[in-house]
Structures are given as C-alpha cells and as structure tokens.
C-alpha cells in the first residue's frame, strides 16, 4: 500500500428517498477521495446528507431510499459492484461504520466478548478459539480497556467505555476505512476527549482512513486533517482543516465558521439566517442562494460544480473562477 494512491474513492454517488411528498434527493452526485492515514471531517446541518453518504458507502441504505448511481472503491475493490454476500464480508474487514449512538447498539443480554466473537466468526470462520480470544483482547487493549471488560455486560460499562467497545468492534478486522458518525455526541467533554484520543491512536496503528461525521466544529478543529462541508446533499467545500478555519471559501462554510463561539468573540452571536432547504423542493441553481449574502444572478439558475482549485482545495461556488480567485474583486471587502 503506497500513500500515493487513494484508499477510498467515491465517484458521483447519488441517493434519493421516495416519500409520499415526492422524491428527496439526499445525496447529489457526491465525489470524494481519501488517502491512507487521512482523517476527514464531514459537517453540515441535520438533513444535509452526511449520514446518508456514510450509509450509501456501506451500502446500507434502506427503502424508501435508493442508491441511484455512482461508484465506491476501497483500494481496488469496487464496493458498488459486489454481491450482497460479498458486501456483507467487506463490511468490518474493508470498511467499518460506527453508527450514531453506537453505544446503544450493543446487545444488552450478551457479554462483550460474545458480541465481538460473532463479528469475527462471520468473517473468518476458520479462525481458532484461541486466536479469536487473542484478537478480542488485542482490540480491547488498543482502545485502552482492560481484558476483563470482555466478560462484562454492556450495563456494567459507562457511556464512554461502551463507545470504546464499539470502536473496538469497528477495528476488529483492521478495516481500511473507518466511518464514525457522531461518535461522541452523547458524551461529556472529558469522556469525549478520551474517546477521540482512542480513535486517533487506533487509526494511526492501523493506518486506516477515518471519516468523522458530525456538526461539532470544535471537534473537527481538534481531530481531522480535512473538512468537507455539505449542504443540501452536495459538497460545498473540501479544504485542509487549517484553511477551512482561517480562510473558508464558500459563503456557507464561512457563515458556519463565523457562527462558532470561541474564546475571543465572547457575546457575539452570528447565526445563519434562513432555513436549510427541503430536499424535495430544492431551490434551483445553488441550493444555498436564498440564504447567501453574495448571491448573484447566475446562482439562481446554474448549479455550481465542485471544482478542484490549484491549491488542492475544492469549492462549489460561482464566486470563484477555476484558479480560486474571486470573480468579482469588490467582494473581497464584503467577505
């Protein structure tokens, strides 16, 4: 495995939910590349398509949702071309998903080791009992839990410990890509830091790529290398974390960053005016234009494509040309 080729490639992935009110385009031709060892944060308001994107990569979209197009590659394996059975085997071994509120997904009547054993047996039925046991202990230790946790039931563990058990299950088979959907949203700050530090260390050991989904920008600033901002089922900007926080390009990303409370801007409240659009009746053109302070005529009719700028950043906004320069120089002052 060389670091020069991406471990995860998502190409034009599209998902719709068919509801009584109409078709909701939850993910609109989303593309993404991720290299081994990279940590990407996916942020956006609720309903922007972050979790849909994760589920679509795992091929876990349930009706009335439907994957309507696009390809997902992990290394050389095209997940979207696998049979159901092959995909089931790819989950956890190639790509694993730690769902939102994962700690509540543990089976309350099974010991931790029984749940972990199930996962291994499904994928590697030939493995001996002793080997399995060793694998379980190793996974628990890598998330800093004592071996004795294996014999415990979920109710005997604290929220943070349960969350770490879920991470341990997620990494049991050494996946190439780990997707963590708001892994710490129910935990308090100290436990949150502990869980994130665990995830960070485990990821470094395995050399996997991590996608962290959430809307806590603070967590993103502390944890990820790159941030992808989603809005109404589309990526609006993908930038290295430092660029995103110091010089966001897309007006939505900018508004999101400016709405954040920091130590310096005490008492300044800058919300984003307006509401996220309905996915059933998306505004024509750029979906953000009704809330955008810089909206131009073209934004109302033409949907901007996600362009790769020479700096390596990606942005989908008519305000920038292909070089990443502002089309209208006067905006520099307004921004």
């Amino acid at each position: 495995m060389t670091t020069s080729s991406p471990i995860l490639r998502v190409i034009d992935l599209q998902v719709s939910y068919y509801t009584e009110a109409g078709r909701a385009l939850a993910l609109d031709r989303a593309s993404l590349e991720l290299y081994p060892g990279e940590k990407l944060g996916m942020v956006g308001e609720s309903g922007c398509g972050k979790s849909t994107m994760a589920l679509a990569m795992m091929r876990m979209i349930k009706p009335p949702g439907r994957i309507e197009g696009g390809k997902v590659f992990v290394g050389d394996t095209e997940l979207t071309a696998l049979s159901e059975e092959q995909m089931r085997r790819a989950r956890l071994s190639l790509i694993s998903y730690i769902p939102q509120g994962a700690m509540n997904s543990l089976n309350p009547v099974l010991r931790i080791e029984a749940q972990m054993r199930d996962a291994i047996k499904e994928h590697q039925p030939e493995m001996s009992k002793a080997e399995i046991q060793e694998r379980i202990y190793h996974a628990l230790e890598s998330v800093e839990l004592r071996r004795s946790v294996a014999r415990m039931y979920p109710h005997e563990l604290s929220g943070g410990m349960k969350q770490r058990v879920c991470i341990a299950i997620g990494i049991l088979l050494g996946p190439k890509v780990i997707i963590a959907d708001e892994p710490t949203s129910a935990l308090d700050v100290v436990t949150q830091r502990q869980v994130m530090e665990t995830l960070d260390r485990v990821q470094k050991q395995l050399g996997s790529a991590v996608i962290l989904i959430g809307h806590d920008m603070g967590l993103m600033a502390q944890f990820v290398d790159k941030v992808a901002v989603m809005y109404a089922g589309k990526f609006t900007e993908i930038s290295p974390v430092r660029d995103m926080f110091t010089n966001p390009l897309h007006p939505y990303a900018r508004a999101l960053i400016e709405s954040l409370p920091t130590l310096e801007n005490k008492g300044v409240f800058k919300g984003i005016p307006g509401l996220a659009p309905s996915l059933i009746r998306r505004p024509p053109g750029c979906a953000f234009h009704p809330r955008c302070a810089h909206a131009m005529e073209i934004c109302r009719s033409v949907t901007p494509a996600l362009e790769r700028l020479p700096s390596g950043r990606f942005v989908a906004c008519h305000l920038y040309d292909r070089e990443g320069n502002l089309v209208n120089a006067e905006l520099r002052m307004a921004g």
């Binding site: 700050v189 100290v190 949150q192 830091r193 806590d216 920008m217 603070g218 967590l219 993103m220 600033a221 502390q222 944890f223 974390v241 430092r242 926080f245 110091t246 960053i257 954040l260 409370p261 920091t262 130590l263 310096e264």
Partner: peptide, 10 residues
C-alpha cells in the same frame, strides 16, 4: 474540564 473543550480554533 476546560482543557477538554474542543475549541473551534485551530
């Protein structure tokens, strides 16, 4: 507690 706050500040 304060040390564990993830400030949105790079």
């Amino acid at each position: 507690l304060i040390d564990s706050i993830p400030w949105p500040d790079i």
